[in-house]
């Protein structure tokens, strides 16, 4: 059985420490709490009008949703590789992985733009019904988080071009934590909007 109490105090402290800047985790926690409320509001709406939600969900393409899930998961994996490389002080490899994470992540924007365009051209907008209100609002807010994330990755790769040791590693880990939050929120949004409750 794993017994943390047998570990040296310093090692244990290091193992339990949050990666990156702990202040960023306050932001992430608060943000995820806000999204949890969004999800709760959606669930309540779905329980009150299941037929509307089912019929509306049928208009969404789960293949695109799945594609975006794979894009973000791959991008997240590249960020894990970047953090791993930075911890070994392989800064160039870390930078390459961050750039790759950003480039792969941009695929999410392309898919989302395609999806929004298709919906709007079929006359499905924010005011079509409650389901689509939430669909646009929640995916829109998530997309805003995504855009900020891409900007953070752009800054991160610039910092990795001239690394400053511990300081740069903490920045990278914080950026990766934020990027994983974007990923995780989508992992909930995708089944909730595209799959849960079935289609008509």
């Amino acid at each position: 059985m794993y017994a943390p109490s047998t570990m040296p105090a310093e090692t244990r402290k290091k193992a339990l420490a949050l990666p990156g800047d702990e202040g960023v985790f306050f932001f992430i926690t608060a943000d995820m709490a806000m999204f949890a409320l969004f999800f709760l509001v959606f669930m309540v709406g779905q329980a009150q009008a299941p037929d509307i939600y089912r019929a509306s969900r049928a208009a969404l393409d789960p293949t695109l949703g799945l594609l975006n899930t794979l894009i973000l998961a791959t991008s997240g994996w590249l960020m894990v590789r970047a953090v791993d490389a930075a911890r070994r002080e392989r800064w160039s490899a870390a930078r390459r992985n961050v750039i790759a994470a950003a480039l792969v992540g941009l695929g999410f924007a392309v898919t989302k733009a395609f999806e929004y365009h298709a919906k709007i051209s079929h006359g499905i907008t924010l005011n079509t019904n409650e389901f689509f209100t939430y669909y646009y609002a929640f995916t829109g807010l998530h997309f805003f988080h995504f855009v900020i994330g891409v900007l953070v990755l752009a800054i991160t790769q610039a910092k990795l071009a001239a690394p400053e040791g511990e300081k740069t590693r903490i920045w990278l880990e914080s950026a990766a934590a934020y990027w994983h939050m974007v990923d995780l929120l989508w992992m909930v949004l995708f089944p909730m909007l595209y799959l849960a409750g079935g289609t008509a």
Binding site: F26, F27, A30, L141, F144, I148
Partner: peptide, 20 residues
């Protein structure tokens, strides 16, 4: 404290929901 700084950033960030 850092959490207050990040609270401030988060509140400013989340205000964007007003756009809806």
């Amino acid at each position: 404290p850092k959490w207050v700084c990040w609270y401030s950033i988060w509140v400013g960030f989340m205000f964007i929901a007003e756009c809806f």
